[in-house]
Amino acid sequence: MSAAAGGLVIDWTQMTTYNTIMSLATGAALLSLAALGRTVARKETVHAEGWALNFGVLGFILTLTGAHMTLTWPFARYFPFDNIIFGEPSLAFGVILLAAAFYLWKRAATLRGCAAVDRELAGAAQPLSIFVVGLGLAMVAIACAGVAFQLFAAPPEEPISGRFAQYPWLEALFISGLYATVGLTAMLYPFFMRQVAAGQIGSAVQKVTGVLLVLDGVAFLLFGALNYYTHIGLIINTMPKP
């Protein structure tokens, strides 16, 4: 990375990035979890095979990209903390989604005829509580680091986001806010699952969790889609000139 007369120049052979597809898949997965929860709460038919395919596709993307980013050190030469901020959470979430896909696929026939699908799913998901809460705490820690060190700020050469380059705290607050609310959702996980396993539907915890999943899912999905434009523009604007 260097400054040239025409602006910032980045050696993109040393700056691998694909948090675009990560963000897109994360948003789709969060929205899918909210949709599955609503389906179960309304006592509607759970088409387990379809949900398994959905979680399998999203889990594969996040596991593959997250594993590569986590195990390649440093993944982006100029931003080695990307391994921790993007790689590790994506890997963890991806593996959880793959496990959910496997379970739903294997139990599809049983779930189809089950009169208490909500309790069945919650009972199977409860043992993950310790790890999910740990991930929630990690998300909050990343959010705090984002604000403290003003991470996530886009350079002026990046379209749209770069317009706010002189206010690095702005994007830091936005992305850190997403991580913090996802972390809060994860920390509500054991309470949510315990209530559902006990047959309680429609509690305040469940409603708050559902709202957070939808809001964060939409934010990650739209932000990931936007980044396809902004990241392409950044690459074009900062490529070394021949």
Rank of each mutant, 00 (worst) to 15 (best):
A4Q: 12
D11M: 06
Q14L: 15
A29Y: 07
L30C: 08
L31I: 00
S32E: 05
L33S: 06
L36A: 07
G37Q: 02
A41Q: 07
K43F: 10
E44G: 08
V46Q: 00
W51C: 03
A52Y: 07
L58H: 00
F60N: 10
F60E: 12
L62V: 01
T63G: 06
L64E: 08
P74N: 11
P74V: 06
F75P: 01
A76F: 04
R77Q: 11
Y78I: 10
F81D: 11
F81Q: 15
D82C: 06
N83H: 07
I85A: 13
I85R: 01
P89Q: 08
L91D: 09
A92S: 13
F93S: 12
G94K: 02
G94P: 00
L98D: 06
A101W: 03
R107P: 01
A108N: 10
R112Y: 06
C114A: 15
V117I: 09
D118V: 00
D118A: 15
R119I: 03
A124L: 07
V132W: 02
V133W: 03
A138I: 11
V140P: 03
I142L: 12
A143C: 08
A143I: 03
F152Y: 14
A154C: 04
P155Q: 02
E157L: 08
Q166I: 01
Y167W: 13
A172K: 03
G177C: 02
L178N: 09
A180N: 08
A186P: 02
M187T: 05
F191V: 10
M193Q: 13
V196A: 10
A197Q: 10
A198E: 11
I201H: 12
K207F: 05
K207A: 09
K207M: 06
V214R: 02
L215P: 05
D216P: 04
L221Y: 11
L226C: 00
Y229Q: 03
H231M: 15
H231R: 10
I235M: 13
N237C: 01
K241M: 15
P242I: 07
